[in-house]
Design a protein around this nucleic acid. Structure first.
Lengths: 199, 199
DNA sequence: GATCCAATATACTGGGTAGTATATTTATTT
DNA sequence: AAATAAATATACTACCCAGTATATTGGATC
């Protein structure tokens, strides 16, 4: 890739970053293209050279966030090495860490789903369901080999997703807990939740 | 109250109901006053006789939803009768049931918070924190008398809130589970989560 | 340093929507 | 049933903002 292309790519990233910050703070609908421009000391046509329209910015943000948040996680879920307990623990720890690291994006994905096209909403929900189903399978595995004691692995999966995804709403890096504290505590709670026999 | 006043009150309710449905389906910003009117077979000035502006509708919806969802729950939390286990079980069951019963409102409260004034956001968050703290106290009580085994009651409280509040996103009354099934399963999971010694 | 091209700004348009002033219908009172 | 009052519709205004056509600037090439 040429230097010029790199620079173009970089500017595009800057737009995305500024947009994410504003979408997080004020919401997608209340954020104007002028706002995004102002945040970068730039005007509207600048934005429109990198994105076809306002909606395209949001869509790219979702795609990127989904990648950042879920690709590694799915890998952990698919990895068949180790006990179900170890895998669940690792999974939840990573899930929490990612949710905190990408806090802004987690929030946007949660709160701005309705701003997407119905096609995109469908895509996202389908991926989400698939993801939840994989987690359920891991829990089921642990249940069938006696590591976990849980009556409904799917509900347990959704409960864990809920408790993890909620963290972005209350966790503050300035608070009494480090991210490491949080990931440890949350993965312990998840193991409790699935009735894991503890050491 | 006179018949006239009753009717006025009732019409106001109808506006709120139609608005809630639309806010749930399309979001607050994308819903126009004309949309709400059309849903009721009525025009804009009708709406404006009952609400000062669009924002007032949302605000009232939040106030009402908060009441419907949290007043009873706070009572259960404050009730000191019975073991911590029993109280937590009852609490979670009711919390889940309410979240399902008021699904639309739960969703709106979660997704449209940014559409509120910052004053109102502050109010809501304060109440929410208070609520979470009360739940944490119940968990702490159970931990100190040996019913529960949990290292950080506040985090456990937030985890439970998260797993419950997420239900509105995936539970469908048309699915394989009745509300009763769900409340039972979820309250069991919550007891697991706090490390409750089981029978 | 003149020419050209790309990047970005200025200035504009059009559509949509919140809110309102005025007209009309419907109900109430006498 | 005429007069009055209340409820609601029609028709309008004003503003905001996404998106664009045109102008300008600044850097690359000769």
């Amino acid at each position: 890739m040429s230097v010029k292309q790199h620079i173009k790519e970089y500017k595009r990233e800057l737009v995305l970053e500024a947009a994410a910050k504003l979408f997080y703070e004020k919401g997608f609908q209340k954020t104007t293209i002028d706002d995004i421009g102002a945040a970068l000391g730039v005007t509207k046509p600048f934005i429109y050279t990198y994105f076809e329209n306002k909606y395209a910015i949001l869509e790219q943000l979702f795609d990127q966030s989904y990648g950042d948040l879920y690709v590694d996680l799915t890998q952990v879920l698919n990895d068949k090495k180790g006990s179900a307990k170890d895998r669940l623990q690792r999974f939840v720890a990573l899930y929490v860490a990612k949710n905190i690291e990408y806090q802004k994006f987690s929030a946007i994905m949660l709160e701005e789903e309705k701003s997407l096209s119905s096609k995109k909403i469908g895509d996202i929900r389908r991926k989400q369901r698939d993801f939840d189903a994989r987690l359920a399978r891991l829990i089921e595995e642990g249940a069938s080999n006696g590591e976990f004691h849980v009556s409904d692995p799917m509900i347990a999966s959704l409960a864990i997703s809920g408790m993890v995804r909620w963290t972005h709403r209350w966790y503050s890096p300035q608070g009494r807990l480090s991210v490491a504290d949080l990931t440890r505590t949350m993965s312990d709670l998840a193991l409790n939740l699935v009735g894991c026999v503890r050491a």
